[in-house]
Structures are given as structure tokens and as C-alpha cells.
Design a protein around this nucleic acid. Structure first.
Lengths: 119, 119
DNA sequence: TATTTCAGGTATACTATTTATACCTGTTGG
DNA sequence: CCAACAGGTATAAATAGTATACCTGAAATA
């Protein structure tokens, strides 16, 4: 972010070099901030989880949503999909190294959310 | 989160006590994860900023979006709106203590986003 | 003086994302 | 045989976000 702000002595601030593309925070949020994405990643923190279990863990999200999010995260290299069995089909999803790198942020968010009793 | 997961020896995990409401991470994301909300808060980190400057700082967001986000954040006690002048009207927005409490998370997100070159 | 510019928004219409609900193929348990 | 589970997909409706134009009033510009 090269944009800056200058103060004019009245407690006001004026922008100097507005950023015309989404800034780093905005870009980050578009990856882990989408609805359900954060909890999805967080629920994978302890290892591989199956599709329907993720669906149950994220009470409220539909299968379609879970599916979309997982595909988007897989496309970004944050999640790995593995078929562990045909007949009966069984699939697990787990975090990659990049996926795991986001866990600290999510853990802090969880603590913040609980500390301030965010509803 | 009282939900847990158990392993069955095949690298798979099964959910034991699914959470039926959005968990803490999901609730937190719904406050600071909405589109533009994170950058909006972040751009207020150094003190009061005026409406139109926020609009310029967040290249891409419309005034309507900025307005909605600010109102939502104000309603949650994260942002304070102050009219500093009638005739010519002038308004500033600034973070409350609660608003400031989210800055660490956002700063970490920014660093993560830059480190892994998230686009 | 007339016109433009800025402040801080609101109104309208449109597009995109998310949700609810049902359904599909195949396997296993009763 | 029938129901339940696996891992999804299809369709439609509701919600969220975008683009564009406009409003009131004051001040700066031509």
C-alpha cells in the first residue's frame, strides 16, 4: 500500500495516493474471508476430513457451498483432495502447507471472536 | 466449539458432535470478513478519516458499500461517526476500542497476503 | 454572475453470490 | 427389499454487491 493520508490540524485526514486495486487485506479476505471458507480451513486443522463430515461440522452450509469452497481452495493450492476408496467411494480433504499457513490468523480470529463475544 | 472428530485408523476422521450454529470463526468472519470491511477497518488505523477519503482509499468500493459497511460497524460499536462541521458538512469515522482490537488480526492477514503473494 | 467542484450521502436497476430443496449413482446394513 | 450413507449435482429463490446517476448546500473558479 503506497497510499497515504495527511492530517490537516482539525483531526481530519486526507488521502494522498489512493490505492486503485484491492489492497493486501482485501485480497487476503477474498481467499479466507468468503462465507464458510475460514471455518472450512479451520476444521481441517487436525488432518484429513471427509466431505460429509465437513458438511456436518459446518452446520448451516450446504453441500454445494462446501463443494465450491473446497474446489476453490484446491485450485489455490490450499487444500488437497484425495480419493481413498472407490466402491464405496471415500474422499478426504486436508490442508497443504499453504493452507496450514493461514491457521494462525484463523486461530486469532477465533480467540478475538470469543473474547468479545461476537454474535 | 464442542464438536470433535475421531480417527478411524485409515487416515479418515469422523465428526462426533457437529456444531449446529456458525462457530466462532464464522461469526468473526461475518463481522470483519465481509467484502471491504477488513480494509475499511484497516484504513482507519491511524485516526479519523472522512467519508470521501475512505471512498478514495478503497478504490473499487462504491459509496453505497462504504456507507453500508460503516453503518454496520457503527451499529456493532466498532466505529464512531462524528460530524465535525455543518455547513459545509464534514464527517469523520474512527475506530473505537473494539474496532482497534481487530487490527492485529488484519495486520497478520496483510503480512500473510503479502508473504504468499495472494492475488 | 454562472458554472463547476466538493462535501456526504441516497435511489434505481442490474449482476453475482448464497441458500433451500430435491435429486442422482452406487454400496452396505438390517 | 428397503432405508441410509457415500460424494456430490440441478434448479430455483433469496440475499449481497455493483454501476450509475442524482440530491442539497457551500465554496472555489471562470
Amino acid at each position: 500500500m503506497k497510499s497515504r493520508i495527511e492530517t490537516d490540524g482539525y483531526g481530519r485526514k486526507k488521502v494522498i495516493d489512493a490505492c486503485m486495486e484491492p489492497c493486501a487485506i482485501e485480497r487476503g479476505m477474498r481467499i479466507i474471508g468468503g462465507k464458510w471458507t475460514g471455518s472450512l480451513i479451520y476444521h481441517l486443522k487436525d488432518g484429513p476430513v471427509r466431505f460429509n463430515d465437513l458438511n456436518r461440522l459446518l452446520g448451516g452450509a450446504t453441500k454445494k457451498m462446501i463443494d465450491q469452497r473446497l474446489k476453490a481452495l484446491e485450485a489455490r493450492g490450499m487444500v488437497l483432495r484425495t480419493v481413498i476408496n472407490d466402491r464405496p467411494i471415500a474422499v478426504t480433504y486436508e490442508l497443504t502447507e499453504l493452507g496450514r499457513s493461514a491457521l494462525d490468523i484463523l486461530e486469532d480470529l477465533r480467540l478475538w471472536s470469543e473474547k468479545y463475544d461476537i454474535r
